[in-house]
Computed example of a mutant assay.
Amino acid sequence: MFYIMKEWLMDMVAAMRIAVEVARLGSFTAGSRELRLSAPSVSRIMAELEADLGVRLFNRTTRQLNLTDAGLDFVEKSSGILEQLDNMRSVVRERHDTPRGQLRVSCVTAFGNECLAPALPEFLQRFPQLGISLDVGNRLVDLIEEHYDVAIRVGPLSDSSMIAQKISTQRIIFVASPEFCRRFGMPKSLDEIRSYPSVSQVSGEWGRTHQFRHLGEIIDFEVLQHFAMNSAQAVKNACLTGYGYSLLPDFLITDDIAENRLVQLLPNYGPVEQPIYAFYAQRRHTPQKIRVFIDYLTEVFGS
């Protein structure tokens, strides 16, 4: 009897994981690919689960897959149960084991490309039983709904369910190419630079306004969007052509300034530092893989 119950529980947990992934990805095929199962196996397990529960969980058409009301309730409760099981397993393993598993990380584009990606190989060498899936982009992800472990963003978020750990800062600097400076001269004030063509990074609400310190005051500078993009690297590449000035994070342009490909403008206007945070969901027991990752980010970028 014990073995029958154990087998049923293991089958149910596996079915719950499949249902959650299928619901998250919106198709049996994508769910099977994510879980490394065959599509027929996923379809069969979901059919057996529905038969066992006596309800339909998914409405299937040739073009889309939607949760029924019962399916939505089942997936929500399953997500909570699976998280509790994962936490319990992590707590037990951590007493005798090294960090292991897969970390899903979302990171803003510029910091992800320039800073985080080059730092991750060292982290993986320290913790060879961990793997990382890095999603680089400026889209604001939902950590819980989309099953991310950590999100790295510029500036604080107002979500009380998240824990924010400051890992670094960035300073947004006025820059232009030497050719631009020869054509337009060196601006002396914010009012003057507003009359020049610009290449700006705007992503959602971010990048529309930046703050600077000048003569003891903090001044808001509203970015003019003559030529706007959502990628800092793309903005830098356009700025290098000499078309216009740009506002770019310091870590992206240090080498360009040192090698005279770009020139800092308005050095008397000190940029207000913008904090860079690592966010993760509040849990009763934070998984060890998240703890060691946050510690590593603080070690590498905190200085």
Rank of each mutant, 00 (worst) to 15 (best):
P267K: 00
E34I: 04
R126W: 01
Y3A: 13
T254K: 03
V292D: 06
R63Y: 08
S133F: 02
L65K: 07
R24Q: 04
Q201H: 05
I163G: 11
A151V: 04
V105Q: 02
A15Y: 07
G270H: 08
S303N: 11
S158I: 01
V223W: 04
M162T: 03
T286K: 14
Y269E: 10
D73R: 09
A258M: 05
G207D: 06
L53A: 10
N260L: 00
P128I: 01
L297F: 03
G131I: 06
I152P: 07
G204P: 15
R283T: 13
E217W: 05
F184Q: 12
R283H: 11
G207W: 12
R89Q: 15
K77I: 02
I152Y: 04
P118T: 05
N66M: 12
I219L: 10
I4L: 12
V235A: 12
V136W: 00
K166R: 03
L57R: 13
F184E: 14
S79V: 10
L134Q: 06
L67C: 07
E21M: 06
E217I: 03
D73Q: 08
A232G: 07
Y296V: 13
Q165H: 02
T62V: 05
H96R: 14
L224W: 07
P267C: 03
E299M: 14
G26Y: 14
Q288N: 04
T286E: 10
W206K: 14
L65C: 09
M5D: 14
R56Y: 08
A110R: 08
Y280M: 01
T109D: 06
R283I: 13
A51N: 15
H96N: 08
A19G: 05
F111A: 08
S200A: 10
A151S: 11
R95V: 05
E94M: 08
F180K: 13
S32Y: 09
G244T: 12
G71L: 07
V75Y: 11
I132D: 02
S303D: 11
A30V: 10
R33P: 12
S303W: 01
S38M: 03
S27F: 08
V300T: 12
G216Y: 07
V20C: 13
D159E: 03
A110N: 08
I167C: 15
H147C: 05
R95N: 08
P128R: 00
V202G: 04
A258V: 06
V91Y: 10
S27C: 15
D250Q: 02
P249A: 09
Q211N: 11
Y243C: 10
L297A: 08
